[in-house]
Nucleic acid binder design. Structure first.
Lengths: 177, 177
DNA sequence: CCGATCATGTAAATAGTTACATGATTTC
DNA sequence: GAAATCATGTAACTATTTACATGATCGG
């Protein structure tokens, strides 16, 4: 159940509403870290509030409820962050397609790799912007910003994917060895 | 529901039992593509058999049932492989920890990065062996082997992770800019 | 004959998605 | 005043995990 730790981590940065959290998942988190929809996030926030890990600190317009992390929430988050991953859950639909590439005949495989390359190129361009944004905001003397490391990881991930797909396509069209 | 596609993909390579499939998940698939346990795999195989995507082609010792992919299973697999990922599910507990790194104070963050570096080094060493094995088996003239591309992807992934973690640790200990 | 591994399952619980549902406020 | 966006929820279903459960065969 890592959703709760994802939420605690985001709330550790700043207090915010379920709606804000949902958007963060949609915009960045779900790309390479964790996927979640609002219908999962809202009930989870309620449960966490009942358990004292978070608390409602403000009720604004349109029923907006701002949640903040509590002391016990911070303890829980730190414990999870530092605990060795026992059997870390990994699910990646795209990586699964890569894994099963050889089940396709050559034309199909080439087509799929072509699409992967296109997508990765777009992702790389996007992540370059994100990284530049984060660098721009940065306060040179302060601690590294939240999201800075994550953005860099995302950029490197997609660059790696792009390199790999190009290499694989090369192998496919002219099996060198 | 990508478990079924993962299973179809593995069965497309060769007919095998739930036990064999479980081990493949345990040994390679779950590292960076898809995670699943036997108690999920067995019922899913039964369901797929009922739907005609796979069939039992052999019953051996100790109740071992060998499943093979059917024509309709191959169609389903190909459709999924070539269909553009609509909202590709990504869940990665380790990447999530990286994402939330800034929620830790500096000593804790350094400790976590150190552990990530150690783990990644071991993974890289392991994947180098796997890649070497697969290359060794290869028939130079034949089509690329199943798992060849996947192993290379795994190696590159962990190399990327290692580079990133070292870079992040450097940033943390001496914030350059 | 004993421990390791092969081999499969079920039950209960939790996690997560999709579809349905509602209404307020802001912007144009 | 209409469309976009803010904001939250519930219900039904499906996916997945954890724990429980059983027994056969193989290697030493």
């Amino acid at each position: 159940m890592s959703l709760r730790h994802a939420l605690l981590g985001l709330l550790a940065e700043r207090a915010q509403s379920g709606y804000d959290l949902t958007k963060k998942f949609e915009l960045s988190m779900k790309r390479y870290a964790w996927h979640a929809s609002h219908s999962h996030i809202y009930p989870e926030l309620k449960r966490m509030a009942a358990e004292g890990l978070v608390e409602v600190v403000d009720e604004g317009l349109r029923g907006r409820r701002t949640y903040a992390i509590t002391g016990s929430g911070r303890t829980e988050l730190r414990n999870w962050m530092l605990s060795p991953p026992t059997n870390a859950v990994v699910r990646n639909e795209d990586a699964l397609r890569l894994f099963l590439l050889s089940s396709l005949d050559r034309p199909d495989a080439e087509h799929l790799l072509g699409r992967i390359i296109d997508t990765a190129e777009r992702e790389v361009a996007h992540m370059r912007e994100v990284v530049a944004d984060v660098e721009g905001i940065g306060d040179a003397d302060g601690p590294p910003l939240f999201g800075h490391f994550a953005a860099e990881f995302g950029l490197r991930y997609h660059l790696m994917e792009l390199d790999w797909a190009r290499w694989a396509l090369g192998r496919l069209t002219s099996p060198a060895r």
